[in-house]
């Protein structure tokens, strides 16, 4: 790592600001996919219109500005040849508690065709570097439902360990599932990089 290395750019994707004009339509399309939403969190699944997504975006930027407790990025593929950048997901740090240097991390890749392409793992790598080397956080947590095995594998591969298992906290697909809380400390992340 060096001061000259780009924080927001990887080899396949980049972390970018929200585009309030173009992004809402694409995100609204993702919300038609109930599975995408179920993998992300425990909120009640519902499709959103582009106008509703736009409102959410405005709320996100307002929250980021007011409390400095959220950092939100749109994940885009890099422009190549005649292909322009393309929105594929989001990554955010939230619930940041500055006095304890702790925060939460979440990543979503909207279209199933864009999963298993290495985009998520690159976004995770960039976000970890950003959280630990720019925001100087001490630890990160991630809430992942037990049934979201791709996300669990991704985060565990990056060094996250299971810290809490909230038994039967979710009622989905006709049965009970645990909600998992994973965690990663700055020191453990750094040791893995160097090791």
């Amino acid at each position: 790592m060096s001061i000259h290395e780009q924080l927001f750019q990887g080899s396949k994707i980049c972390l970018t600001p929200i585009d309030h004009e173009k992004d809402p339509e694409i995100v609204a399309r993702w919300t038609q996919d109930a599975e995408y939403q179920r993998m992300l969190n425990s909120d009640v699944v519902r499709p959103l219109s582009p106008a509703q997504v736009k409102k959410q975006y405005e709320a996100i930027e307002k929250a980021s500005e007011e409390s400095n407790g959220m950092f939100y990025y749109s994940i885009r593929t890099l422009a190549r040849d005649d292909q322009p950048e393309r929105l594929i997901g989001f990554a955010r740090l939230y619930w940041i508690e500055w006095s304890h240097a702790a925060g939460m991390l979440q990543i979503g890749i909207g279209d199933p065709a864009d999963r298993r392409q290495g985009y998520g793992s690159e976004a995770l790598r960039l976000m970890l570097r950003y959280a630990f080397m720019e925001l100087n956080l001490f630890r990160l947590g991630a809430l992942i439902p037990e049934y979201n095995t791709p996300a669990l594998a991704l985060f565990q591969k990056a060094g996250f360990i299971e810290e809490i298992r909230r038994r039967e906290a979710l009622n989905r697909y006709g049965r009970r599932w645990d909600m998992l809380h994973l965690g990663l400390l700055h020191g453990d992340w750094k040791a893995r990089l160097n090791g």
Binding site: E163, I164, R166, R167, H181, G183, L185
Partner: peptide
Amino acid sequence: LEGVIHQAFLREGQRWDLLNMG
């Protein structure tokens, strides 16, 4: 006890765990 968030808080110059129960 359902788990422990390691070194969740910094107080009095020391890191402390947060326990979760259910």
